[in-house]
Amino acid sequence: MILGCPKEIKKQEYRVGLTPHCVSAYSRRGHKVLVQKGAGEGSGFEDQEYAEAGARLVETAAEAWAADMVVKVKEPLPEEYRFFRRDLILYTYLHLAAAEELTREMLETKVKGIAYETIQTDDGHLPCLTPMSEIAGRLSVQEGAKYLEKTFGGRGVLLGGVPGVERGKVAILGGGVVGMNACKIAVGMGAEVTILDISTARLAYMDDIFQTQITTLVSSERNIEKIARESDVIIGAVLIPGAKAPRLIRREHLKLMKKGAVLVDVAVDQGGCFETTRATYHDDPVYLVDNVIHYCVANMPGAVARTSTLALTNATLNHGLLLADRGVEAACAESAPLRRGLNTLDGRCTHRGVAEAFGIAYTDPATLL
Rank of each mutant, 00 (worst) to 15 (best):
Y281E: 14
V162R: 05
Y281F: 15
G320H: 02
R306P: 03
G17W: 04
L96N: 04
K7V: 13
S140R: 01
A305M: 08
C22P: 06
E221P: 14
V141A: 09
E49I: 04
Y362R: 10
G359F: 02
Q48R: 14
V35L: 10
I293K: 07
L57K: 09
G272F: 00
G154F: 01
A66V: 03
N223T: 15
D290Y: 00
A298W: 05
L107G: 02
K37L: 15
A99D: 13
V328C: 08
L96T: 05
A98G: 09
K226A: 11
E80F: 01
A305P: 01
E143H: 06
G124V: 10
A324Y: 06
H282V: 08
V266R: 08
V268N: 07
L90I: 05
R28G: 05
T309V: 15
D207W: 04
I2Q: 14
A99G: 10
Y91V: 03
E230W: 11
G30W: 02
L322W: 09
G4I: 01
A228P: 12
Y26N: 11
L368F: 02
K72N: 01
A366M: 13
N343R: 00
G44E: 12
E46D: 14
C296N: 07
R85I: 06
V170E: 00
E143R: 04
G320N: 07
N343S: 10
S199C: 01
Y147D: 09
F358S: 01
K244H: 11
E252K: 08
V70Y: 00
E149K: 05
L254K: 00
K112D: 08
E134Q: 14
G40A: 14
L321W: 02
A51C: 09
G359R: 02
V262T: 06
Y205P: 04
A243M: 06
R278D: 05
Y91M: 01
D265V: 03
K112N: 11
M180A: 12
Q270H: 15
L196R: 01
V264S: 09
T344R: 00
K10V: 09
N343M: 07
A366L: 13
K74S: 09
A311W: 08
A55S: 03
L312G: 04
E13F: 07
T212C: 10
